[in-house]
């Protein structure tokens, strides 16, 4: 017998509508991709007890438990409770599963906790952002990556946050061994050169990846006390016009980024096309409609950018328009 279930409510509760009638899958969100091992055991046990014994690892660092009978959802929610509590997410009611599924899980690479190149604590920033914007039905994707390698593929997100450090150079500790120049060339963007046996950094070219600091054998290069970020915006996948996010801000600070993403929700509320399926629309399409300047006006409201922050006056995206023409040439 088909259960009388509100499928739309179910989806908002982070249960997927399965193609197998009568079944669902529970999505466990893992902000920043870091989950306690004991909670992973709990997730596995739910799969054993209520699912089909399998777990699916999602592209956005979630864990999906497939093969759950719809009638078991209340029991599954009960079992999700400790996992939600441990996730430190912004959700007071932990008795009814995950709230809302519009704003997607916040993705992060391992960052400085593990990676030698990570320029900041991606997990902590992802968790802070999670607190700031969850739960929310608006379709927003935010991702964090530790350095310009972009292992977290932040360029496919509405907001892609990339870590930067401003390399500090002490010429008195430099012996012109050339390691920084060599590795900047081979691993980064060739922003360094030796002039009169001391290193000169092209400040415009430098992407703040910190490779020079990692490879300097004498501590002539060190990291700035401040952590900086590059923000890429409005990347997306999808059927119509997939495209990579483009640089909007660089040398921006953490507080400003949180505020900007929060502000963006008001912009979405103002301009979203509610006729879109399930009231969801990639922000980039809204920006295409309103113009980039209008987005900036809303996003930067009451944001005081630091003196080092550079802001792009224009941002241009590309990507194929499949809604116009997709014949191969």
């Amino acid at each position: 017998m088909t259960q009388d279930i509100n499928v739309k409510a179910l989806k908002k509760n982070a249960f997927r509508q399965s193609k197998v009638r009568g079944e669902t899958a529970s999505r466990v969100r893992v902000p920043g991709g870091l989950v306690r091992a004991e909670d992973m055991v709990r997730i596995a046990q739910i799969a054993e007890d209520f699912g089909n014994g399998e777990l699916f690892l999602t592209n956005r660092q979630g864990v999906e438990i497939p093969g759950i009978k719809l009638e078991d959802m209340p029991k599954v929610q009960e079992r999700l409770k400790p996992i939600i509590e441990h996730a430190h997410i912004n959700q007071e009611d932990t008795d009814h599963g995950y709230m809302a599924s519009g704003t997607r899980n916040i993705v992060a690479c391992p960052g400085k906790r593990l990676c030698p190149f990570g320029c900041y604590d991606t997990t902590a920033f992802a968790q802070r952002m999670d607190q700031a914007i969850f739960p929310n039905n608006r379709h927003v994707k935010v991702a964090f990556t530790g350095c310009s390698n972009d292992c977290a593929h932040v360029a496919l997100n509405d907001f892609g946050i990339i870590g930067m450090t401003e390399p500090q150079y002490d010429p008195n500790r430099c012996v012109a061994c050339g390691a920084c120049v060599k590795y900047c060339q081979s691993r980064s963007v060739s922003a360094l050169k030796l002039v009169n046996d001391k290193v000169v950094r092209d400040e415009n070219k430098c992407i703040g990846c910190g490779v020079c600091v990692v490879y300097c054998p004498t501590r002539a290069w060190t990291r700035s006390k401040e952590h900086y970020f590059r923000v890429k915006i409005m990347g997306r996948t999808g059927k119509q016009n997939p495209r990579l996010a483009q640089d909007w801000l660089r040398w921006v600070d953490e507080d400003s980024i949180v505020k900007i993403v929060q502000n963006t929700y008001a912009y979405i509320d103002e301009y979203i096309d509610e006729s879109k399926p399930e009231g969801k629309e990639h922000i980039g399409y809204i920006v295409d409609r309103t113009g980039f300047e209008e987005f900036c006006k809303w996003a930067l409201k009451d944001v005081e950018l630091g003196p080092k922050t550079q802001v792009a006056k224009r941002v241009y995206w590309d990507g194929k328009r499949y809604d116009r023409e997709n014949e191969l040439v």
Partner: peptide
């Protein structure tokens, strides 16, 4: 102890 002046982010060095 030079705080934050190690090779990696937020690591220290003693010099």
């Amino acid at each position: 102890l030079k705080v934050g002046e190690g090779r990696f982010t937020d690591t220290d060095v003693v010099r």
